[in-house]
Design a protein around this nucleic acid. Structure first.
Lengths: 155, 155
DNA sequence: TAAACTGGTTCTAACTTAGAACTAGAATCA
DNA sequence: TGATTCTAGTTCTAAGTTAGAACCAGTTTA
């Protein structure tokens, strides 16, 4: 066994998420999907990814329920890759990564793409971790409790 | 050049973030740091990661300003790995991954760890992407604008 | 009908990872 | 003090993964 170590059974949702979308390309493919890419060729040229790797990734992501394929919307016989509800659920992950990059990885004045509110054209607000009653929480205000059963509605 | 393709110069903050913390182990190491791990051995036993890979990852993460080393707080001559402000800035990323995992990767009733508000002991609220004026935004309410200069204070 | 496009598959070389073995300095034990 | 164990690594090898090029079949366009 020199296969990459799976974290699926760790009982930690973070580990399990990374097991599914934690490889080098998946989140970039998903980001491109949020930005409008649907076709194999769009992903390929947008990312500069090898066709072999892209084919493998898309197949895995479809298997894992993050993308589904559909007939091409332009009427041709080709297929499109569309995010499922599960895939669209990754939007906050992409936004969190984007905001961290904006805040820590760009020099002042350096050019970068910008995520804006479509209606107003203004940049979106900073993500905040909040308690159920709406207080903003920093990491030290929180705590991870070991394995507990996820009761329906216990969020 | 068969080295892994770097996305650093893509101008997209998501790509740049993944270039820094997008490998298999980094986010799990950072998650453990949020959960209290500080020492090499704590990360190693907590993750079941090989020592060689862990040493490389920790060195990279220190180089990239996500961890810093400090004398061990127990008075021994060993060192500790502490998250910098930049590293602590990844908290929303970890929370977003956790919530996605909770929502989509666990069967009802399956055991998992839980992130709670330390003060009240209640699970935290679902992350929401919001406009500057506080409206909750779905992915289709947003849009990525190509390369623009990041003006100081334009967030 | 020919040419070009789309969406792949296959192949190889280079790179990364897992895991075991080894090591040096620090701490603990007898 | 000396021996043992612990900590935090480094080094090595085998196996898995990735990048990129070459190839190919079905579809669309000229």
């Amino acid at each position: 066994m020199v296969k990459r170590v799976s974290q699926w059974n760790a009982g930690c949702p973070v580990a399990r998420s990374l097991d599914v979308i934690g490889d080098w390309w998946s989140l970039l493919i998903i980001r491109d999907a949020f930005d409008g890419s649907r076709r194999f060729g769009e992903f390929q040229s947008g990312l500069g990814i090898g066709k072999g790797v892209l084919a493998t990734r898309l197949r895995d992501l479809v298997e894992r329920g993050i993308f589904e394929t559909a007939p091409a919307s332009d009427g041709t016989a080709y297929r499109e890759y569309i995010l499922t509800a599960k895939g669209r659920g990754l939007f906050p992950v992409i936004v969190a990564l984007r905001q961290w990059g904006e805040d820590h990885l760009f020099a002042p004045g350096e050019k970068r793409s910008l995520l804006v509110d479509r209606e107003k054209g203004a940049p979106i607000a900073q993500l905040e971790v909040r308690s159920r009653d709406g207080r903003s929480l920093a990491w030290f205000d929180t705590q991870v409790l070991a394995e507990s059963s996820c009761l329906p509605g216990s969020r």
